[in-house]
Design a protein around this nucleic acid. Sequence first.
DNA 1: ATGTAATAACTGGTTAACCAGTTTGGGTTG
DNA 2: CAACCCAAACTGGTTAACCAGTTATTACAT
Lengths: 233, 233
Amino acid sequence: MNNSDPVDSIIHEIQELLRNETFQPGMRIPSERVLAERFNTTRGYVRKALQKLEFYGVLEIRPQKGIYISAIRPMALDALITNILNFDAFDLGDLMEARTNLEVFSARLAALRGTEEDHRRIQDAHAAFEKAFEDSRYTLEEDHLFHLAIVKASGNKVLQSLITQITPEIIAVNKHFKEDPDKVLKNSLKEHKRILNAILRGDAAAAATAMEQHMDASRERRLDTSSEGETTP
Amino acid sequence: MNNSDPVDSIIHEIQELLRNETFQPGMRIPSERVLAERFNTTRGYVRKALQKLEFYGVLEIRPQKGIYISAIRPMALDALITNILNFDAFDLGDLMEARTNLEVFSARLAALRGTEEDHRRIQDAHAAFEKAFEDSRYTLEEDHLFHLAIVKASGNKVLQSLITQITPEIIAVNKHFKEDPDKVLKNSLKEHKRILNAILRGDAAAAATAMEQHMDASRERRLDTSSEGETTP
DNA sequence: ATGTAATAACTGGTTAACCAGTTTGGGTTG
DNA sequence: CAACCCAAACTGGTTAACCAGTTATTACAT
């Protein structure tokens, strides 16, 4: 565990702190200044580490009072911190698999619950996608907006949040690969249309399978271009 | 949009900045100091806002160089920022719905791909859960560890990350409600056992349905106790 | 010995000054 | 006039001092 990031190494030290000294859930841990001195670092890094742990629900920071361990019991807490430390460096396959699951679920919910306005927004996004394709422009943006409109129509803000978190990661991993704008996007257009129609007529099962096939096809397309891209200088 | 959080209001101002002035993707935006002066705030808050936007993939901060807009096109960027601003204040129903979807998927993958070691870990977690139940101890911790073991067995780190993010949120929303340790947990034990057996024999469909029923039952139990809890002074 | 009030120590939050690189533009030199 | 070089003006990163509010302690009056 030779982590170079000072923040992560502090998180690791806090993990060991919680292991060795018997801290009960809800208890207060030493202050930022004390931790900084004990870990032989500055307060700023300790602060960042604590805020990251608070973001993931390990700690609760109460202004002018102190830092408190959340109500989870020690063993689960330890596993949680280990997960946080392993967050970085996601595999593209894992990302796509998780995203597919979320997108399929979104499509199903959108078909079940989508309001008139939701339908209009999805149609608008699809029209923009279609127009971009006809202008033979780069359509990654419109593609995303179509999917965003669907997850918004699901009415589940948590889903929306999760997909919003995953998508940029996929872009970051995938940004090197240029997609073939001709045949590839023509298929995407057809697939989008199938999804759109299923949602509009409220057919949840059809929407789910259409989305799943779209994501699978998209994944295959990307993997193809990726292997092509590797051969280029 | 009268957001009281200074960080979020700065993010909103950056959103408008990207709307009005024609910033191309990949372009550099003004420095922290300039933004602080323009938004009439201090550099620290601008810094936090920028780092939040970087975390979600909107910006890229390059030390000693500047702040750059990511390669997403303007319209998708705008939608992304809007999502970020709406992240807080999750509904418990949305949280449980999203978690159910992820857990069911995890169980299915665990049944398909789980290794011998994965199986052993899930069995251990289940044994600990069973023992805690026999000791009539509080078993929320062991419950979580069982679910964590399953998602770990799915082999998908992204899924693991997403569930790890959602679970504390649910605990935070739900921590007021005490569960009835007698009849409630006896049902949980049965349900866990069904999930475990399905995964061990590699039956993906059975694992998925068992997990779905467990999550539904768990949700009903919580809603019950929640409505009971509301009537108490 | 006890209850209370004043105070000192400590909390996380915030700010401003400082740091080491990077870029840039003007002045100098061929 | 062009090429180069060096210094000044930036960049984000980091640190330390300061702030307002909380808590524990201590001293004093009862």
